[in-house]
Simulated scan of single mutants.
Amino acid sequence: MIRNIRSGLHPVAAVLLIVFLAGCSTTETLRPPAPTVSFAPTSKYAAIVVDANNGNTLFQSSATAPRYPASLTKMMTLYMLFEAMEQGRVSNATLIPVSAYAAARPPSKLGFRAGETISVQSAIQALCTKSANDVAAAVAEYLGGTEDQFAAQMTAKARQLGMSGTVFRNASGLPDDGQRTTARDMAVLGIALRNRFPNQYANFSAREFAFRGKLVKGHNDMLGRVRGVDGIKTGYIRASGYNIVTSVQADGRGLVVVVMGGQSAKARNAHVEELIARYLPAASRRGGGGGGGLFARN
């Protein structure tokens, strides 16, 4: 597995992910913190908290149990798009056509007619902020030929990154019984995105973006709610419950927090806040001051 990770990442990022995976494999499941707000874990619940400076797992609950990713899937769609940009296959200005199939995807969506186009830069913003399913399908068809072929590429990339419990069937996270992941794998993917594409990662912190003269607001209410939260992605389908991957950095400490299976966005977000409040003070500090952390290295 270490060989596969190294083949898909920059050297430093590969080492950091290896450290993270080692931490996951040696840390015992910890007792969930006593909630200070109403949060009732269900059979869909899974969570993991990772120290972003050293890769240690500070808390986990059902972190390797199969779960539906919902729109967390778009983190891998974006990884594939960022990689295509890095390889020179597309640029910010490249226009992606929207097929009748893509235009017909159910919400959340921007709302295209078949034959229209969207630039790569706008597609990135739409996926990070609006979580647009029509845009995800258009990106998949543009890069992979068909969404099925792109999903197979996404799964292969997941294996390369060490995401052993993940299978992708589409680019959006729309319901599919065969599409599975784990809280651990989503943490691995969040770390990989930040370390390999630090410049593009800033898109995950956007709370809104302008498109065709209108302001499109996002879904991630953790942004601006908790000091130090800088992204990255939410997701929901009925089968999954309310999912989120959150990155937080404050006072030289950093965490990656994944919560899956919340009964509501409000309850999910409150639980993430609890986990941050409990584990951020216990996280390691880099440099004895602000900034940095594992995510800032590349």
Rank of each mutant, 00 (worst) to 15 (best):
M1G: 15
P11K: 11
V12A: 13
A13F: 10
A14I: 09
V15N: 15
L16C: 14
L17F: 04
V19R: 01
F20N: 05
F20P: 00
A22W: 06
E28D: 12
E28F: 11
T29Q: 12
L30N: 14
P32D: 04
P33G: 07
A34T: 10
T36M: 14
S38M: 02
S38Y: 01
K44V: 00
A46I: 01
A47T: 01
V49S: 12
T57R: 00
A65H: 15
R67L: 05
Y68L: 06
Y68R: 11
Y68G: 01
L72H: 02
L72Y: 03
L78W: 05
N92S: 09
I96G: 10
V98K: 06
S99T: 04
P107W: 09
P107R: 13
G115D: 03
S122A: 13
A123G: 06
A123E: 14
C128Y: 07
A132K: 15
V135T: 14
A137Q: 05
A137K: 05
E141A: 04
L143F: 02
F150A: 00
A156F: 13
L161K: 06
L161Q: 01
G162F: 03
G162C: 04
F168S: 01
A171P: 04
G173V: 08
R180T: 13
R180N: 12
T182W: 09
D185K: 07
D185Y: 11
D185M: 12
M186G: 05
M186A: 03
V188S: 07
V188P: 00
A192P: 02
L193H: 05
F197W: 09
P198T: 13
A202G: 07
S205G: 02
A206V: 11
R207L: 07
A210Y: 05
H219Y: 05
N220Q: 08
L223S: 09
L223W: 07
R225G: 06
G228M: 14
V229P: 02
D230T: 05
D230K: 07
I237W: 02
S240C: 09
Q249H: 12
D251P: 07
R253K: 02
R253D: 10
G254H: 05
V258M: 02
V258T: 01
V258L: 06
G261T: 00
A265N: 14
A265D: 10
K266A: 04
K266D: 03
N269F: 03
A270K: 00
H271S: 11
V272N: 08
E273S: 08
E274V: 00
L275E: 09
L275I: 00
A277W: 02
P281Y: 10
G289L: 14
G292T: 03
G293Y: 02
